[in-house]
Design a protein around this nucleic acid. Structure first.
Lengths: 186, 186, 186, 186
DNA sequence: CATGAATGAGGCTTCATTCAT
DNA sequence: CATGAATGAAGCCTCATTCAT
């Protein structure tokens, strides 16, 4: 049996299930059973399933951005970094069989108004947006407003690439978006 | 009480709930109660909840495309039509309080492998994609391959606009996508 | 499509299902669907599922006894006829894959106190019993009481043979019972 | 209210209903209502209705054989023991108003291929058969084959006695079978 | 801190029957 | 005489959560 402590086991099992199987589709029972944990032990650590989802999303946020940053770190210019983001998407989504974005997915068919969860989604998406703005603002040829506008266009491209590739179960949408991105940055 | 016949009442109530409340979040009991219909009456007309969802999506497909086509019909050129699609998105999504695309949403957190539902989603998305390709192929300056590639870029823009506006609960992503689209068509 | 009239089609389909699939396990819907008949057409001819079962049992009674009598008819003496009954059981039960006696089966797990059905079962079993008594009474060496007592012993053997062969899905119990019978008649 | 723990209460209520009312005729709702237990409590202890039936049959097997063995224990010879079995049947079946054998009954009209249940029935019947064989093998005058053959004849008598008495709601079939048995053992 | 029994509400589906056409 | 829509009751099962130990 895994020797990680209880809380950690719960988080890891739940994260996997929430992402690959869906939040609504994953029951508490499956989580505790696969984590080899007693039910009340789970409720000791997490007030509710919703709270567990929040932790899942916080972790995912950190890991996912970390992976992205590592991936694009070798690139010299900010433009190259942005364009490489799409290569990262391909790498990632092929590996997870085009399961799509955990944040998009959990927000799509959410039990009514689960604010805590929605807040994490917004946080994640806004941080990415802000980071893209930042990258562009470092470009000497753009003023602040121009940088933000261009960044928003790229944000839409990224999200569109993810959702379309998920539905099509194919990476062409990502390559398509990348092509657009390149033109925008030209 | 609404005097539509039972089957129609079921479809309309279910469609509303599936779209605004979510597929997983909507139970048979709520549907029959709001439609003022007996449970077995529902199962007379629909073999399962999944089958009801299929009918919902088929209806939605027809209505949604119909609305879109009506909206852009006055536009003279194909380029203008494509650009007007984004105006349509704004109109539509503001009216439904940025609830997003029924097809995207239902595909995001679906009980495992509900093929019949996923098939409807793919059908819908592919039809839109094909239509965009068609519009562009009528342009004398593009060969077939160029038209399809450009079309795919616009597809990603449209879907990205929808999902980002849903998460942001705001129409800026649509305007952003439209700006990108205009540049692509220039 | 079968050109038998509606009522006949219903009876034949229901009989097959009631026997091989079980009374409780067979729903009205399956019957009408396999008989290609409308639901209310069925209720035109039969007041209830229970009534349909009664007709099924009446038919079965006639057919089954008819088959038995044909089978043993060539035998010369009454003793030989009785002993041949067990050969008939083997023939019959092997053909129906040891599904057992339709009357025993329907009476075993019957919706509470369905008198009309139970009456048919009793009728069937009593007729067989009376017939066996009659055969034995024609024997010059037995008085009436002796004949009836011996007959009852054979009745038990017959029923035991059927139920045990059904549970064991094998014909050894019938051969066993026959051996006992032969000894009783010696 | 009964102070037995929940699981025990469920088993006892279910056993009573399964036996006297029939397996198919007994719903989960009736069981939990009469056991004063929540539905999910039942499913905590038993994976399904079928599993509950298996436990019911296992209990019944132990209790029933125990009762039989106690009943015949005073008898000196094995032959006397076997003959006393029929007295036991009378005692038992009169007390339960000729409800018959729980194993026979549940196997008669079973939802298609419920293997786990059928397995318990076979187990029970085979154990009785083996025990009868054993008793007879201790008889110095029979070789192994003869003992088994004779035992099988008695098995059929026992089962026949039960099913006929159930249908006739009378104990004459048991007395009849006993008479036959005595002759076989003579 | 960990356990698993117990819960009420609700999940989807099927039952035998009746009714309007 | 035939149809299929409509029904209320009941079917088996699972949910997220709490509580006594």
């Amino acid at each position: 049996m895994n020797k990680l402590d209880v809380k950690e086991r719960i988080i890891q099992v739940a994260s996997d299930l929430f992402y690959f199987q869906g939040y609504s589709q994953t029951g508490i029972n499956q989580i505790i059973s696969e984590a080899h944990v007693a039910k009340a032990s789970m409720y000791q650590h997490f007030k509710s399933k919703e709270d567990l989802a929040v932790v899942y999303l916080q972790r995912r946020h950190t890991l996912w951005l970390g992976n992205l940053f590592s991936y694009i770190e070798p690139k010299k210019t900010n433009n190259e970094k942005l364009i490489a983001c799409f290569d990262y998407l391909i790498d990632w989504l092929e590996e997870v069989n085009f399961r799509g974005c955990g944040f998009q997915n959990i927000s799509c068919d959410l039990p009514q108004e689960q604010h805590k969860i929605m807040d994490q989604v917004t946080l994640h998406k806004n941080e990415i947006r802000k980071w893209i703005h930042t990258l562009l603002k470092e470009d000497r040829n753009l003023n602040e407003k121009q940088a933000e506008d261009l960044g928003d266009e790229i944000v839409v491209l990224l999200e569109g690439a993810i959702i379309v590739s998920q539905i099509q179960k194919n990476s062409w949408p990502i390559k398509s978006a990348q092509k657009t991105c390149i033109r925008l940055l030209a």
